[in-house]
Amino acid sequence: MGITVASAVPHPALCIPDLGPRKREAAIHSMIARAHQAGAVRDIASVLDAVLMREKLSAGVAAKGVAIPHARALAVLEPRWIVARSARGIDWGAPDRQPVQLVTLVLSPPEWSAATHLEAVARASAITRLVRLRTRLLDAADAEAMLALVRTAAP
């Protein structure tokens, strides 16, 4: 089972143009809550736990103002990516010490194989790989503009 951007980010509600929290944990919580509203997550606390555990064990990646937290967890019902932007930046504790302005949270259900989840993370990372795309995402007017860019970046 693979994933396309159209199925992972099916509507603009999963793009957050103005992520409020400035701390990593609160930012991830806010993104998981958005996935919960969209019916993709059964239990916010359990998924937050899984994502933070991976962040703690250095499984996530943050660099160049971009972070890609991810989890394959029991409480994830549907594979979803949540793309968020923070104008002020989030204190992510990245090795390069840059505040993170773009976050792509990748959530996969437990039924997916490890390889399929890793492929989804690789595809999601393509959204923000190029400087040009990062700049355009930061300049996008609203969630719908962000969604259009995301779909262009990783079709």
Binding site: A59, V61, I68, A114, E119, A122, S125
Partner: peptide, 22 residues
Amino acid sequence: LLRQELNARSSARAPAAVPIGA
């Protein structure tokens, strides 16, 4: 599930671009 991903990564079945370093 994370352990399985690490095993998949070490057995080189995962795409090279995956940013995972647990």
